[in-house]
Design a protein around this nucleic acid. Structure first.
Length: 425
RNA sequence: GUGGGCGUAGCUCAGCUGGUAGAGCUCCGGAUUGUGAUUCCGGCGGUCGUGGGUUCAAGCCCCCUCGUCCACCCCA
């Protein structure tokens, strides 16, 4: 025996028992996106590496150590997309969709980051990205949050998820605060915990969120981002909060909420649950007014968020448990191998006459007893027997597997009648 | 990248102080010539994750390594 080949670490297979739950979440999201007037785009999985180093930020964890990069045959550096926003902006610029226009776009598919896998975190993971361009009004930020609220309600997950909100202010105010923070902390460097010492160079904002009590004590008099917000930034955020109040969406202000991607400005938000362990962020996003310019376009405001499909699936499973029902309505058995051809024909006639009916024909053969065992295990509501007698009469024997109803031999028309008038089981 | 838990049949797991690898479920056959979910009988199924070491003897002890899960970090 050859050594069995396994899937790549952190890249999962989805088995038949799980895919219906995925489809439920994908279908609900797609329907809601249509209802909000969003248009679908499809993006390549592979992009030029520079798109991400320029878009996401040179010194972010994603770019520094998590990208799957490879050399193309002509020496160009390509990267498996670690997130979707940069690619979506690239698409908009390349096709002239952004300048002086309003665009509402969405896309779905896998993203790739080289991280240590754990619950809710995988090297290939699925996102549905929602992006809106051309509007700087906080009403857009509010609508993106409203979308998340409605989606979570539709999935029956709203009670398990809370909204966290923060503002980073304009690019200028963010930079000024960062400078002041670094100036304040640098003399204290030796007293910080190890993680925060590293953050001091990379992402000082995150130090504010340190779990180390010693570090927290040192931060008591640290410069606060709020004090650096200019009037316009403050007004923008106040307006967003007012909108949310008006549509009845409650939120928790979290000054420690700092998105790890460099492109965020003004509002940032996360939908968070505590039912998934450490990786509890189920959707997250914010405004990125300077990203388009950073990627070479005319300055265009934008905002968006990403839905972590893997995590929504996990949460749905944790909250709603077993799901869904059986995948079959009818399981057809064949008495002897000689009747297989006629059975193939009969099953297809049945599918044709009853649209949507799910009919599986047993092709494993063997004793009728075993075919019935499989019929039972399949979850189907009815079993059919196709044998010499039935074929000769152009009929099939129908047996109810879940209810006590008499077994009967019926023709195609009677069968259609019975199956279409029987309510859902 | 760091830390901890776990790797024994297709699945869930037992396996004592080192002494001939087990159970339940699944699957197949039979009791029942063409009828499941209950019962009874029988059967298939294992390089004990991999490689090395200690020992008369290793699933068990030691070392390496791989995989997996959870956490840190970070993020969807």
């Amino acid at each position: 025996m050859q050594k069995a080949i396994q899937s790549v670490r952190g890249m999962r297979d989805l088995l038949p028992a799980e895919t219906p739950r995925w489809r439920l979440i994908e279908d609900e999201t797609r329907a809601l996106l249509a209802a909000f007037g969003y248009d679908e785009v499809r993006l390549p999985l592979l992009e030029p590496t520079t798109l991400f180093s320029r878009g996401v930020g040179e010194s972010t964890d994603i770019v520094e150590k998590e990208m799957y990069s490879l050399q193309d045959r002509d020496g160009d550096s390509l990267t498996l997309r670690p997130e979707g926003t940069a690619g979506c902006v690239r698409l908009g610029l390349q096709h002239g969709l952004l300048f002086n226009q309003q665009q509402r776009l969405w896309y779905a598919g896998p993203m790739f980051r080289y991280e240590r896998p754990q619950k809710g975190r995988y090297r290939q993971f699925d996102q549905i990205g929602v992006e809106a361009f051309g509007a700087s009004d906080p009403a857009l930020d509010a609508e993106l949050i409203q979308f998340g609220d409605v989606l979570l309600r539709r999935l029956g997950l709203r009670e398990q998820v809370a909204l966290e909100l923060n503002t980073l202010g304009s690019g200028d105010s963010r930079a000024a605060h960062r400078e002041a923070l670094v100036a304040y902390l640098t003399p204290l460097r030796e007293k910080l915990d190890a993680d925060s010492q590293r953050r001091l160079d990379r992402n000082p904002l995150r130090i504010l969120d340190s779990k180390d009590p010693n570090t927290q004590a040192l931060l008591k008099d640290a410069p606060r981002l709020q004090d650096f917000l200019d009037d316009a930034s403050q007004a923008h955020f106040a307006q967003l909060c007012a909108h949310l109040d008006q549509i009845g969406i409650s939120y928790r202000l979290n000054p420690g909420l700092v998105r790890g991607l460099d492109y965020y400005t003004h509002s940032v938000f996360e939908w968070v649950t505590d039912e998934l362990g450490a990786q509890g962020t189920v959707c997250a996003g914010g405004r990125y007014d300077s990203l388009v310019e950073q990627l070479g376009g005319r300055s265009t405001p934008g905002a968006g968020f990403a839905i972590g499909v893997d995590r929504l699936v996990l949460l749905h499973e944790a909250v709603h448990g077993a799901w869904p029902g059986p995948a079959l309505d009818v399981y057809a058995t064949v008495a002897e191998p000689e009747q297989a051809g006629a059975a193939l024909a009969f099953c297809q006639q049945l599918r044709a006459v009853v649209p949507g009916l799910r009919v599986r024909l047993d092709t494993a053969g063997g004793k009728l007893k075993n075919q019935f065992k499989r019929a039972d295990a399949s979850g189907a509501r009815w079993a059919l027997v196709l044998g010499a007698e039935e074929i000769a009469a152009g009929k099939a024997t129908v047996k109810w597997l879940r209810e006590s109803q008499p077994q009967a031999m019926l023709g195609l028309d009677e069968l259609r009648q019975m199956l279409t008038t029987t309510g859902p089981g």
